[in-house]
Design a protein around this nucleic acid. Sequence first.
DNA 1: ACGCTGACATTGT
DNA 2: AACAATGCCAGCG
Length: 121
Amino acid sequence: MVEHPQLPPSDPVARILAAIRAVPAGQVAGYGHIARRAGLPGRARLVARVLREHHAPSLPWHRIVRSDGAIAIPRTSPGFDEQVRRLQREGVVVINGRVRMPAVDSPDTLDAALWGPASRR
DNA sequence: ACGCTGACATTGT
DNA sequence: AACAATGCCAGCG
């Protein structure tokens, strides 16, 4: 078959999964962030659908939170506590269902700043 | 085809 | 911090 090695998968879902797996332990990323990193700007909801569907154990789903730092699933859901536990085990500070997001001072410095150490502010 | 719904984001109040 | 209005796009009835 005519495969193009070193070329990103054309399947949007595959790229989203790759982007999620790329989030290092101890850090969190927003849905829009993942979408943009997957080359799909504006498709945060697609990321959400992928996460709900692909609850594979190898997938660090717990590192994906809303852009305001809040856990995206309802508190009453069993997954909520699970996510909080996993995050805290990685050293992420979770307060009242919300994590400390890496505060970006300027909107221009997006990815580089966000992929940096999360133990800051 | 149409309208709702949803692990969302952004902007304005 | 919280809420509302829009924009967004894929599944479902």
